[in-house]
Design a protein around this nucleic acid. Structure first.
Lengths: 235, 235
DNA sequence: TCAAAAGTGTTGCCGATACACCCATGG
DNA sequence: CCATGGGTGTATCGGCAACACTTTTGA
């Protein structure tokens, strides 16, 4: 087959949750890297780059993620592939970019902060980005909001042991709205995915919250766990 | 940038619904093409091929779809990109494949049936396919079941005017189970996406059903149309 | 004793489900 | 008149949202 030669690139939208809002409210943050050449010189872009010949797509996403954030993600998932002809008007060839999205626990994400060409910004308030990366981030945000009901995703933003309030704050940051604490508590406990460690967080100016862990198995989703998500069956 | 050169391919999983089951029950079908060279010579594979330099990804998917089914899809959507190193063990280079899925109305899909190297098979009962295409089809089926709640997707399997029973049969074929007719009727009517044409289908040995059309706007989904899919907000 | 957040109880609403029943047509 | 599928009515059940209330800690 006479396949024309094209460039394949891999980029990653890396999310983390930080208590940076007014009153300690949690917000979504992501790292961007500064373009050091044309096109879009000096603008911010998603971390990424060309795909090496001996890497899987996930390998490449992991490598660029480590380069940017200084560590590995606890969750990595493919978002979509972008291949419009006008993506990279400066380059001669067309570039097809496979985009992944990733989640980092908050305490780890501070590690890579030092690099001058990397900045962390609030995901919901970004400047215009290089290429079509503003659009890509919008897609990733939408996907994350759909996927946060999966406990596998929620856990990847948190340390191994956490309070239900922390888990709720992750949901609130991603959904962009507050969530009723009593109902949230019942929901996640009923899902069977949480296990009480028996420990509590001391030193709070109020009743000390219990620490939980995720269990390996259980319901696939925190929410929408009813018998049938769609209509019914008739035998 | 010294980007290594790799092949980019585009494949499409093309779905249609046909009344081929026992008692005229509807089933999901898809077209496959026979491999005419190594690797996987003589086996069935998804329609697709290399990406030309001046095509968008969607252009390529549309072109291979037309080549296989003889016409254009009424719905085309990206599924995922597969780039494992062991996908094409016969080829020297690695191949990254961007996979789309598509929906065709039933009456149109018979057109391309003639070609000797194309066959239509039941989507739920396929033989082993070339490459990792069995896995790809499984992913596409799962995605289709998630997306069928979107009226945009459901309409793409049907002609412009259709009965609610036909719409229900499309859902049944995709979900793989029967659906309660009275409740289904109420659901789709309540969604505001259907408009009565005033016409009816004559010649039936029973009460003639009404013909409907899709309206342009309305609820985004037939189902899960409640105020908040996830938990609640507290202002 | 108070403030604050953890955690519990309760109620009303609404959608999903199941299924009984009527309607309209051809044979 | 009967069979068949279209189409309507209705009762039940369970989850979710709202919110009042109790508990437990540090200050």
């Amino acid at each position: 087959m006479s396949t024309p030669c094209a460039s394949i690139a891999v980029s990653t939208v890396i999310f983390t949750v930080r208590p940076t809002g007014p009153g300690g409210r949690h917000e979504l943050w992501l790292p961007l890297v500064r373009r050091i050449r044309e096109p879009y010189h000096h603008m911010w872009a998603l971390p990424g780059g060309p795909l090496d010949g001996d890497q899987t797509l996930e390998d490449a996403a992991t490598a660029y993620l480590r380069l940017t954030a200084g560590l590995d993600a606890s969750h990595l998932e493919q978002l979509a592939t972008f291949g419009g002809l006008t993506r990279s008007q400066g380059a001669d060839e067309r570039v097809v970019t496979v985009v992944y999205w990733a989640a980092l626990p908050a305490q780890d994400a501070a590690a890579g902060e030092e690099d001058l060409n990397v900045t962390w910004l609030r995901a919901t308030d970004l400047p215009p980005l290089a290429f079509d990366h503003s659009l890509v981030v919008a897609h990733a945000l939408e996907r994350l909001r759909d996927r946060i009901a999966d406990p596998t995703v929620a856990r990847s933003f948190l340390p191994a042991a956490f309070t239900i309030a922390q888990l709720r704050e992750v949901h609130e940051a991603i959904l962009g709205r507050s969530v009723d604490a009593p109902n949230f508590r019942r929901h996640v406990l009923r899902s069977g995915r949480l296990q009480d460690t028996g420990e509590r967080v001391p030193g709070t100016p109020h009743r000390p919250p219990a620490l939980y862990r995720f269990t390996a198995d259980g319901a696939p989703d925190f929410f929408r766990s009813g018998p049938n998500p769609l209509h019914q069956e008739t035998p």
